[in-house]
Design a protein around this nucleic acid. Structure first.
Lengths: 118, 118
DNA sequence: TTATTATTCAACCTTTTGGTTGAGGATACG
DNA sequence: CGTATCCTCAACCAAAAGGTTGAATAATAA
């Protein structure tokens, strides 16, 4: 059904591509700089970046002779929502957390800051 | 690095396998019943189930001559946590949501139900 | 026992994936 | 201008993925 979901999960399935995404979390980077830490040809990295772009996980913009790669974390929303359909695994469950906070308020315990409802 | 993450994301990248997971959300099923709605050989479905099992997304248990497939939603925790490392995409962000609810309480607006704090 | 049902295995095929190398198009620099 | 740098394209390759069919195994049913 959802070809986009196919593309996103497939893009995330490769460790090199996940590493690239983590690098881009720190800062935008040009292609050559992205490639630098990897023991792999520049062309290979270029292909990985195309896969990531087609999945919407990064955006690439050419400025001068450098092509800048920028993380697009909003693309993770779709797979995240899909996963949340499976419910109970989720570290943060909306309903449970809302109930928890409501209970905190009612009991007057004003120390609702750092507690995690397990 | 994480071969498990590789396996999980790769397993989720196929629409047939995602459909199987959705089916198993309703109930445990035997292999033949899983295969029934798909226009595909039983052997193909059997392979898909093996992929899902190796990723930890389902468990298979043989009882009699039927092999029951059971969803293991906890396997989604690892990819979910990995994704949360990218932050702002997340539909439910603990800190943001807490601030949002705190604001709701202070302003006395009791309609905190269906709103998404963007 | 024999037959039927449930599932996997083995061999095979085609397409995709992830890598290589070498050439080539832009853009910047001297 | 000529040359170096950045990046992609094209052709190629090996391995993996996703499918098929037919035989094999295992458990139930008659």
């Amino acid at each position: 059904m959802s070809a986009l979901l196919d593309a996103i999960f497939a893009a995330l399935a490769d460790p090199t591509r996940r590493a690239i995404l983590s690098m881009l979390l720190e800062d935008d980077m040009a292609v050559t700089d992205v490639a630098e830490p990897f023991d792999m040809s520049l062309a290979a990295i270029s292909k990985h970046l195309i896969v990531l772009e087609r999945a919407g996980l990064i955006a690439q913009e050419k400025r001068g002779r450098l092509k800048w790669c920028k993380l697009e974390p909003s693309a993770l929303k779709l797979p995240s929502v899909w996963m949340q359909g499976f419910g109970q695994f989720d570290p943060i469950n909306l309903d449970d957390f809302e109930k928890f906070l409501a209970a905190e308020i009612k009991t007057g315990s004003s120390d609702a800051s750092g507690e995690e409802p397990e």
